[in-house]
Simulated assay, not measured.
Amino acid sequence: MFAVHVNKTWPLVEQKRMTPADAVLGRWPISDEKIGEFGDVVLGVFENVVVAAYDITGHSRDAENKVIFTGTPSTTWAHLIGQPTPAAPWGRRGDAWPVRTVATSVVAGGDVPVEDTPAGRRAVVDGVVLTVDDDRHVTVILPAGRAITVQYATT
């Protein structure tokens, strides 16, 4: 699964000057090896939140060797729209590469390994995103329709 950073193009979608498909499917610096390994789904990510999901049906390359995907809106992965990216988030200083990868099987299983991010240590378990920052504040983001019970130690 690819996650592509659409922070420059998604505002054009919001202004109705570009289609979501054009923003997400077009012109990415991806190797053929990566396409072979991760080329089943592409997620558009704006401000580290999934805004679109497409099942990849093919691809071509432009004159600059950038990948242009063809695809259809994904029904399998539509539940990720509005959720934090399952791939490593953008935001670290010097972090400009526009494409992330994550194994589709990992996302299908609902778990993403713990990783250090600018916001703190982050894990995704069964679609629930848990982040603990440097001050030890805990943020939990639940998928729609989920409930949470919080318990804490008294000592």
Results as ranks from 00 to 15, higher is better:
81 I>G: 00
92 R>K: 09
114 V>N: 13
126 D>R: 13
102 V>I: 15
46 F>Y: 15
95 D>E: 01
9 T>P: 08
31 S>E: 00
95 D>V: 01
114 V>M: 14
103 A>W: 15
25 L>E: 00
106 V>C: 10
125 V>D: 12
41 V>C: 08
96 A>R: 11
10 W>C: 12
122 R>A: 15
126 D>N: 13
111 D>W: 01
68 I>A: 12
51 V>E: 10
67 V>M: 09
38 F>H: 03
67 V>C: 10
43 L>I: 08
48 N>D: 14
134 D>T: 09
47 E>Q: 12
115 E>S: 14
127 G>P: 02
63 A>W: 13
113 P>D: 15
60 S>E: 15
38 F>I: 02
142 L>F: 00
44 G>I: 07
105 S>F: 13
142 L>P: 04
18 M>N: 07
143 P>E: 09
88 A>T: 13
32 D>K: 12
110 G>C: 00
128 V>K: 00
129 V>K: 03
151 Q>A: 14
20 P>Y: 07
149 T>Q: 10
95 D>A: 02
79 H>E: 05
44 G>H: 08
36 G>Y: 06
4 V>I: 14
100 R>L: 03
3 A>H: 06
29 P>R: 06
24 V>S: 05
81 I>H: 01
15 Q>I: 02
30 I>F: 13
43 L>N: 02
50 V>P: 03
111 D>K: 13
91 G>V: 02
99 V>I: 14
119 A>C: 05
23 A>Y: 05
61 R>Q: 12
92 R>Q: 11
138 V>P: 07
87 A>V: 02
37 E>K: 15
25 L>I: 04
75 T>G: 11
123 A>F: 00
125 V>H: 10
70 T>S: 13
78 A>D: 09
97 W>E: 14
110 G>S: 01
8 K>W: 12
155 T>L: 06
41 V>A: 04
153 A>H: 06
29 P>G: 07
